[in-house]
Every structure is written in C-alpha cells, then in structure tokens.
Amino acid sequence: MLYQVQDWDDAYANGAHIPQADSFVPKWRRQAAAFRATARHQPLGAEGILAKGDLFLPETQPKGLCVFIHGGFWMKFDPSLWSHLGAGPLARGHAVAIPAYTLAPDARIGQMTRQIALALTHAAERIAGPIAVTGHSAGGQLAARMVCADDTLPAPVLARIRACVPLSALVDLRPLMRTAMNPVLRIDGREALAESPALLEPAPHIPVTTWVGGAERPEFIRQSRLLADIWAGLGAATECVIDPGRHHFDVIDALCQPDSPLIERLLN
C-alpha cells in the first residue's frame, strides 16, 4: 500500500487521536507531585537553565546516571511535570537527571541541543558510572542528538554512554517544516540538516533502541524505524521496538516500572 501524507498537521497531531487526551496532563501533574514529595531531589545546577532541571538521587551510592529529556514539540512543558518518569531507574539504584531547555520561540532547536549537552555534561560531573539517555517525542530527538558522532558532547562523557532509547522520537525535522508549528519552531533547511539525528552519523559504540507505541500516528512509527534503519547502516547496533497497543501518551508509562522491558533495555 502506498503511503503518502496529505495533511502534515494531522500527521503529527496526537491528542486528536487519543481517547480522553485532555486527562493526561492533569494525571501526569498529580503523579509528578506525588513522586517529588517523597523522592530525594535537588536542582541540576545552581543557576540559569541548569537550575530549572532536577537531579533525583537513590538512597545508596548511584550505580550510574539516567537522563530523561521531556517532549512537547520543543514548545511546551517543563521538567517538573515528568518527575515520576524517573521512578524506574531510581528504584534500580540510578540517579536520574531531568534537564530543562529553553522552549520555542525563545530558542531554536540547535540552542536546545547545546543546553541539553551542557546539562548532561554537568550531571555526568556529579554522578559517576555509566550513562543511559532517553527522551520522549521532541525529547527523543534531543536524546538521539546526544549520541551523534560530532562534538555535541565532550568525548569523555560520550564514552560513558552505554545506551540511548529515543521514545516516539522525531529524528528527521524536514517534515516539521510543513506544519503549522513551524512559525514558532523556525526550522529551516540548514537547521534540519544540522539537528536531525537521522541525517547525522551515530557514535558507533552506543546501542540505540528506538521505542514507539504500536497505536501511535504512522509518522512517529515511520520516524522511529527510520533512525534504527539508517544508523544500523552506519555501524551502530540498533533496534526498533513497536510496543503493542501503546499510544503517544502512555508509551512512557514503562519508565515508572523498574522491571519493565523498557527499563531493562535502558539500563542493561
């Protein structure tokens, strides 16, 4: 069957295709607040954008560092809304960093990449051991961007990354230029080439698992397959996992579960 997108805005519209979509943000807010009330946490840094992120610490010496980067089409949300997604790695003894980045239109995606790289590097200076990187949707793009074979991260930090799991990630930014979001995002051809992980080289030593819900919009499934396929051809160890029945808003739930297959893949 031929696949051709006729409506690019609908292709990336999640809420319109998820039952009771409006209930998810209030639910996440409640879950995050409950988690923050009991978890050990502190600002990721002392000032600026670092101070807006969180670092969650286990009760014992951390086994390593897990970094989660939130989504929202680079335009919405802040780290505190997603605090509860650190529960799975935290229960496994890993520190969890949830960094902030300046949202569009106040920043372009290239600036966000540099902010996340700074946050990851700062967290790596505070927490020893292996690093795992994940992120959801737009955050998945930023997560994958961290493991590209360029100078985004300092070489010693990149060498410590043992796994990258972009969730429902947007890895080719060129289609987003056709959407009504782009006057806010301001993606142009040059930035799409510079910030699309699927158009860049992967760091060859890092296993990459793209993870996407089986009930998601076809574009998110296509993009997840795209990165796994292209980076496999460039020497990386990759897999695309299509999680049956999961949609864009609940595919992240497994991050809360210490023994979920998603956590196993991220921390193994």
Results as ranks from 00 to 15, higher is better:
Leu2Ser: 14
Asp7Gln: 04
Asp9Glu: 11
Asp22Val: 12
Phe24Thr: 08
Phe24Ala: 02
Val25Ser: 09
Val25Gly: 07
Arg29Gly: 12
Ala37Cys: 03
Ala37Lys: 01
Leu44Trp: 12
Leu44Asp: 09
Gly45Trp: 05
Gly48Tyr: 11
Ile49Lys: 08
Ile49Ser: 08
Gly53Ile: 06
Leu55Cys: 09
Gln61Cys: 09
Gly71Pro: 10
Met75Gln: 15
Lys76Ser: 13
Pro79His: 13
Leu81Asp: 10
Leu90Phe: 12
Ala97Trp: 04
Ala97Leu: 03
Ala100Pro: 08
Ala107Gly: 06
Gln111Val: 15
Leu118Asp: 09
His122Ser: 15
Glu125Gln: 14
Ile127Gly: 03
Pro130Lys: 00
Ile131Asn: 05
Ala132Asn: 02
Val133Trp: 00
His136Tyr: 11
Ser137Asn: 06
Ala144Gln: 04
Leu153Gln: 05
Ala155Leu: 13
Val157Ser: 00
Val157Lys: 00
Ala163Met: 10
Asp172Leu: 01
Leu173Ser: 05
Pro175Thr: 11
Met181Gln: 13
Leu185Cys: 04
Arg186Asp: 14
Leu193Thr: 09
Glu195Asn: 13
Ser196Gly: 03
Leu200Ser: 02
Leu200Arg: 09
His205Ala: 15
Ala228Gly: 06
Asp229Ala: 07
Trp231Glu: 03
Ala232Gln: 12
Leu234Cys: 10
Thr238Ala: 06
Val241Arg: 14
Gly245Asn: 06
Leu255Met: 06
Leu255Asp: 00
Leu267Val: 01
